[in-house]
């Protein structure tokens, strides 16, 4: 049971990596990865939001929407949950932890339109996972996002300093780097039989 949980986390984190395989969270991946500490803050905020949002959305789907036969309202419900969660977290940080707000607070509104949060919540219920597997998916996805965005930011810092041709500067070379990273991650495919 625990083994299945851990394997599911590894699957979501490495084999079907959220950014390089499933293509969630590309906008912050390209936008907030110029400096390493920014990337770290973004990744931590994303972990927080995805885990809590998935934990709230799964019970709502299975205990409120499905018994009432209105399962098609899941998209609207999830986006409401995610948006309210982000607003509440931001308010909470502003009032009780100004230091945490100074580092994470800027990125919280950006997480509302992050494909990863809605993608994970929607994917959990579209593929009919149990609550344990949904949480494994959420934890693996968000930690995978942190790993990827941090690694990418370290690479980009080096890229800024190197001699890139003018037409490739900025986003194009970043995308080509992401392509190489994606190829490298294909190497994880055989990790879990």
């Amino acid at each position: 049971m625990v083994v299945a949980f851990i394997l599911a986390i590894i699957n979501a984190m490495l084999i079907q990596n959220v950014v390089l395989y499933r293509f969630y969270g590309i906008c912050p991946f390209l936008g907030v990865s110029k400096k390493s500490n920014e990337a770290l803050s973004m990744g931590l905020a994303v972990i927080f939001v995805i885990v809590i949002a998935s934990a709230i959305c799964w019970p709502i789907y299975h205990y409120i929407l499905v018994p009432a036969n209105i399962a098609f309202m899941d998209t609207i419900t999830y986006i409401l949950v995610i948006a309210s969660l982000v607003q509440l977290i931001e308010m909470f940080l502003k009032k009780y932890s100004p230091s945490l707000y100074a580092s994470l607070g800027v990125y919280l509104p950006l997480i509302t339109t992050n494909c990863a949060v809605l993608g994970v919540a929607q994917g959990n219920t579209d593929t009919n996972l149990t609550f344990g597997m949904s949480m494994a998916n959420a934890i693996g996805t968000s930690v995978g996002f942190l790993i990827i965005i941090f690694a990418f930011s370290c690479i980009r810092v080096r890229l800024e300093a190197s001699n890139v041709p003018k037409c490739l500067k900025g986003i194009p070379i970043a995308l080509i780097t992401a392509a190489l990273m994606s190829l490298a991650f294909v190497g994880f495919t055989g990790l879990i039989k």
Binding site: I176, A179, S182
Partner: peptide, 25 residues
Amino acid sequence: SIFTMPAGAFLVLGVILAILAYHAN
């Protein structure tokens, strides 16, 4: 077959943006 893999997606978008940046420059 790299182009149907996720890596190909990044590659194609990067190259298209590079071509557009070249013309803009």
